[in-house]
Design a protein around this nucleic acid. Structure first.
Length: 811
DNA sequence: TAATTCGCTAGACCGA
DNA sequence: TCGGTCTAGCGAA
């Protein structure tokens, strides 16, 4: 290779970025190597999109030729055209010199009568490049590059080739902004910290901190910014993590650098702040900016974590079970002005970047697995949604299999789809009361396995073969799916399911705690996320592969199988206590655990394809309650189970809900524990009475009385002003920022008449200022009474000890 | 404009 | 003031 001047580079693909230069749109490819990040430039890849055509006289080939002669705005021309054959049929592929020209033609080509549809015309150029070359971000890559870093050829590395560990760090800033929100035009950065795996530093201008070992004292603010950028470069970081860097730290440091006449440049240019769909994002050219706040929002939606509040303190408490100290705005300003406690402030700054790094490290394997599976960059994956992940995966697959990628639907189509929702699961009303020996069984990955087993996919729907119409893939909706050729979606699901089992298997065999094992576990988790998201996207109105009929068929099959299994269970002599979507709760008459196993086995023999029933376990006792409004009906989606080892599982009850105060939840859990472990309510009643007494005597700390609820729209848009909205409005009047997405922690105080009037933000409520009557009548009693009611107790019994004597002595 | 629908409940709101 | 209805949020799957 040396003789031709071509270098052969191996590394990990970090990013691809499009840039318009002269008459060309080129692509910058960023690769992490042992020497650091290298940038290569691809100038041979041409932008393109497809059109489908229909014309009575002219053939596609002639139409393609004709289009070449057309002139569009600004004299724009199509640079090349050809007819290609996708699985959906022939299409005309139009090439362009650059992306702006593609955009002009894509908007104007509709004017020709023979143009029916445009395809793949909105795919970002950088994404296009990754798809067409089969590249995998955060995975090994080979680049053959000329001496000037232009790409000669590029290809993904063989999968068995080890990928180097990415180098990651995290940064955090502190500002001086007395009395108001910091604005980069006026308020300086006073401290900046950078954390790397075993080290963390703080840059600051204050001489007083010279003795603090982790502080680097510099002469002015510009040197703070430059020092930080230099350290990122010196450590060759591939990933820089922040906490809310998209909206705060990075736009701030960029603007501040401009004001000071310097730059925050870690090697390939200034930070780029982009307005994305809903909010801004900040890109550091070359380096992957991982905003942990965005990442946690995603992981929360994917149910990998369950976070309520997203400030760094709450996150630390929830993820690491650690308390983190916090400097409030005014404390930071005060410390800076007086110079008292500067070292503590520096430590706080250092701690923030260290915690951010830990959050990033905790989920890095999973996010990287998703990058590789969906072929999106870390930057993209960490800011995406479940829908985007599946969509990205399918776009890559579609290209690889020779399908044309369906376009995103028009707003009109979206609206009409929204008007027509899909019928979902079957939920059986439970028999309320205390039950013993409950066996729980469920269908493993029910929706995905139905889709695989019945070949459910948009492209197999109502196929032309007459045999398929009456075969095994005829859904209860009377639509059918091809029994001869595997569908696009179903085949991918099949592969994902197989890969997931393999990954889980290999993880078990790998060395415990090794990098390999963690990687395999993350892969399995990533695959599970994708698997579980497929059905949802099929029914998502904005999805490229939306198919109402396919989604309807999936749920119809699901209802069929669960009802069938219920019937089989009853035939086998079990009583089916409850069922929701894919699970069954069985009450044994005389049967033993082995009989349940035999039953599961017998059902599995009858189930098609990859569908599988699984025995989850037996519980010594369980309780179902009646609905609060219609007292005779059993409440669905609400139960508590206790196994022989006294482990308690609580589902759906107030205990698992954030919009009930901690005291009510704790009391409810206590009640459930008592009644399930003893089968009788005496101890539970005593606990409730004690709690009520404590409330009346003002002994309960305010933090145990806070109720959390989210503000989900602009405050002025509420038709009904509930307590959380009222509390938020009052807080805004006091100068606090409360917008869409913020979580209100409110307490019902003594002041006011309606509940909303009494509601105040927890932080404004002094100890003892709570409405005890409200908490008794609206929190404690409602949380426990319908459990105790299953033992024949009424509210009067509970409050006044009516049945005390008959239930035994308990004072 | 961020995967789905089903189900439960509190508290405001509204009209008699 | 009462009872029915509507709005809103959260959780299960």
């Amino acid at each position: 290779m040396m003789n031709s001047g071509i270098r052969n580079i191996q590394g990990m693909l970090l990013d691809v970025e499009a840039e318009h230069m002269g008459m060309q749109t080129v692509l910058h490819v960023y690769v992490s190597t042992e020497q650091g990040i290298e940038r290569f430039t691809e100038a041979k890849f041409e932008p393109y999109f497809y059109i489908s055509c229909q014309d009575k006289e002219l053939k596609p080939k002639e139409l393609a030729r004709r289009l070449l002669e057309e002139r569009f705005s600004g004299g724009t021309r199509i640079s090349k055209s050809e007819v290609v054959h996708k699985k959906e049929g022939p299409l005309i592929k139009l090439y362009f010199r650059n992306v702006p020209e593609l955009k002009i033609v894509r908007d104007e080509v509709k004017r020709f009568d023979f143009v029916r549809q445009r395809y793949e015309h909105t795919i970002p150029f950088a994404r296009r490049y990754i798809i067409d070359n089969g590249l995998k971000p955060m995975q090994g890559i080979h680049v053959h590059a000329n001496a000037d870093q232009t790409i000669h050829s590029i290809s993904p590395a063989a999968s068995q080739q080890p990928v180097p560990e990415p180098r990651m760090g995290a940064l955090d800033l502190e500002m001086f902004s007395p009395g108001k929100m910091a604005s980069p035009e006026h308020n300086p950065i006073i401290m900046a910290s950078l954390a790397v795996p075993r080290n963390a530093w703080v840059w600051c201008t204050r001489k007083e901190l010279e003795q603090v070992d982790f502080v680097k004292v510099v002469e002015d603010e510009a040197k703070i910014i430059e020092g930080l950028a230099h350290a990122i470069r010196a450590h060759k970081l591939d990933i820089v993590a922040t906490y809310n860097g998209d909206r705060f730290d990075l736009p701030y440091i960029k603007k501040r650098a401009e004001v000071l006449g310097t730059a925050f440049d870690v090697g390939f240019g200034k930070v780029k702040v982009q307005k994305r769909q809903l909010h801004a994002s900040a890109r550091i050219p070359g380096v992957q900016h991982l905003d942990c706040y965005q990442m946690l929002l995603l992981l929360n939606r994917l149910q990998v974590v369950n976070l309520i509040k997203f400030d760094l303190e709450s996150v630390t408490a929830s993820l690491f079970n650690e308390k983190k100290f916090k400097f409030r705005f005014n404390e930071i300003n005060q410390t800076w002005e007086t110079g008292k406690g500067l070292a503590d402030l520096a430590r706080y700054n250092q701690d923030d970047s260290m915690v951010t790094l830990r959050v990033a490290e905790k989920y890095l394997d999973l996010v990287i697995a998703l990058c590789r599976l969906t072929r999106q960059t870390l930057f993209e994956v960490s800011r995406s949604s479940a829908g985007q992940l599946v969509e990205a995966l399918l776009m890559n697959e579609a290209f690889a299999q020779g399908h044309v990628i369906p376009s995103t639907p028009s707003e009109e189509t979206v609206k009409s789809r929204q008007m027509n929702p899909i019928t979902a699961a079957y939920v059986k009303e439970p028999l309320p009361g205390l039950h013993e020996n409950i066996a729980v069984i469920d269908f493993r990955s029910m929706y995905p396995t139905i889709m695989i087993s019945h070949n459910i996919s948009g492209d197999t729907l109502d196929c032309a073969h007459s045999e398929c119409k009456t075969g095994k893939n005829l859904a209860p909706t009377n639509h059918w799916f091809c029994a001869k050729e595997t569908g696009f979606m179903s085949s991918i699901l099949d592969r994902i399911l197989t890969e997931r089992l393999e990954a889980k298997d290999s993880a078990k065999k790998a060395v415990k705690g090794s990098g390999e094992q963690k990687e395999l576990e993350a892969k399995a988790q990533g695959l599970k996320i994708l698997l579980n998201s497929f059905y949802g996207t099929l029914a998502y109105p904005r999805f490229r592969w939306y198919s109402r009929d396919a989604a309807q068929a999936t749920t119809a099959f699901a209802r069929h199988y669960i009802k069938q299994t219920i019937a089989w269970a009853e035939e086998a002599g079990f009583h089916v206590l409850y069922s929701d979507t894919d699970s069954l709760f069985l009450l044994a008459n005389k049967q033993k655990k082995e009989d349940v196993e035999l039953f599961v086995e017998s059902v599995n023999k009858k189930l098609p394809g990859r569908m599988e029933l699984e025995f989850k376990g037996v519980y010594a006792r369980g309780i179902f309650v009646t609905k609060k409004n219609q007292g005779e009906r059993g409440a669905k989606k609400k139960y508590a189970l206790m196994d022989a080892q006294k482990n308690l599982t609580i589902v759906g009850f107030e205990y698992v809900r954030r919009d009930w105060c901690a005291l009510a939840k704790k009391t409810q859990k206590g009640v459930l524990e008592h009644v399930l472990s003893e089968g009788a309510p005496e101890k539970a009643i005593r606990l409730v009475r004690q709690t009520i007494d404590d409330l009346k005597k003002g002994r309960i700390p305010v933090k145990d009385l806070a109720i959390l609820k989210q503000i989900r729209r602009p405050l002025r848009k509420y038709a009904a002003i509930g307590p959380h909205v009222a509390a938020a409005k009052k807080a805004v009047a006091r100068g606090k920022e409360m917008g869409t997405g913020s979580v209100v922690a409110y307490v019902i105080t003594k002041k006011g008449t309606t509940i909303s009037e009494k509601a105040e933000l927890e932080e404004f409520v002094g100890e003892g200022n709570y409405d005890a009557e409200y908490y008794i009548q609206h929190q404690i009693v409602p949380a426990v009474i319908y459990i105790l009611a299953e033992f024949g107790l009424s509210e009067t019994d509970l409050m006044h000890g009516g049945k005390q004597s008959s239930l035994g002595a308990f004072a």
